[in-house]
């Protein structure tokens, strides 16, 4: 009667000790990454949050505590809401198109034909192109007077289109650059996904008389769903972070039609020279992306097929 509790206690003690030792080990192993994250992620983040409480002069000298003012200003400013709206439109324009085109190319290239390696290289090459190069290429396509597209339009007797100077076209133009840039990565990821799909499934489907379309919809898409979810989330996040194309092609204009949220933060920080307000906007953006990503995972994960 007496022994058991003693034994139990001793066992508990050893277990506790072991647990502590494990925790110590775990902490030691985590320390390097904690340090890196601390210095480069958590500290800047906390500091940004803190900076958002202060109104700052352009020279970083004068700081006045203004509490939550800059956060409420951000949330109520029509310019910031416009940026959110533009970013949302941009996401809708780029993410589904990018995914569909990337997947389409991957399926086209997923055939055992001679010379396919060349096409694969071409299709994935946009990964190796920088935003600056892509933007310059599109300038040479879209410029109203010297752009290839407008020269063609003029050759056919039409009126040139001011792609980057008209509010109706500018966001579409920026989206086109982005979709083109994203093609490469989506192509690579979905190609890799396609390679891993078991051939026997397709064989038996073919034996059962399934059409190409039904093989695509009933086999490829469900089996590829983890990859597609990954692509979807990544594209959404990058679309919320898009900056280079806007800076190089339209500067947020015309009439804020392409004033994506990160560009608006940049303008506040480096054109208004207002770091405090920019910090507040950045924090708001962080929470938006956080919530959006969480929602995407919650809703979409249920529909994703991760295998048997």
């Amino acid at each position: 009667m007496n022994r058991r509790p003693v034994n139990d206690r001793a066992r508990t003690r050893t277990r506790t000790r072991r647990r502590w030792r494990e925790r110590g080990l775990a902490f030691t192993l985590l320390l390097p990454s904690l340090l890196v994250f601390g210095v480069f992620v958590f500290y800047p983040f906390a500091r940004t949050f803190w900076l958002g409480f202060f109104e700052t002069d352009p020279f970083g000298g004068r700081r006045t505590f203004v509490g939550l003012d800059q956060y409420t200003d951000t949330l109520t400013s029509s310019s910031f809401r416009n940026s959110l709206w533009v970013t949302l439109k941009f996401t809708l324009l780029t993410v589904p198109t990018g995914l569909a085109l990337g997947l389409g190319l991957a399926i086209l290239a997923h055939q055992k034909l001679r010379g396919m390696g060349f096409y694969r290289t071409v299709f994935s090459s946009t990964v190796a192109t920088s935003v600056a190069v892509a933007s310059l290429m599109f300038i040479s396509l879209l410029s109203p007077s010297v752009g290839l597209i407008n020269q063609a339009i003029r050759w056919f007797g039409g009126e040139p289109i001011f792609f980057l100077q008209s509010p109706g076209w500018a966001l579409v133009a920026i989206s086109a650059v982005t979709v083109w840039q994203n093609l490469g990565i989506i192509f690579i990821v979905t190609s890799a996904g396609l390679q891993s799909l078991p051939d026997d499934l397709y064989e038996s489907a073919r034996l059962d008389g399934a059409s190409a379309w039904s093989r695509f919809v009933d086999i490829t898409v469900p089996l590829l769903s983890p990859t597609l979810l990954f692509g979807f989330v990544v594209l959404t996040i990058t679309s919320f972070q898009t900056f280079g194309q806007v800076d190089l092609l339209t500067n947020g204009g015309p009439l804020e039609a392409t004033n994506l949220i990160v560009f608006s933060i940049f303008e506040t920080a480096f054109r208004d020279f207002n770091p405090g307000s920019a910090a507040a906007q950045a924090v708001v953006l962080f929470f938006i992306v956080l919530v959006l990503t969480a929602v995407q995972f919650k809703i979409l994960e249920r529909r994703v097929f991760y295998g048997r």
Partner: peptide
């Protein structure tokens, strides 16, 4: 995804100049 998070935070940091 994690890289994206890191980058968005780095951006945040950049925003404070």
């Amino acid at each position: 995804r994690s890289t994206a998070l890191v980058l968005s935070l780095a951006l945040v940091a950049a925003a404070c100049g």
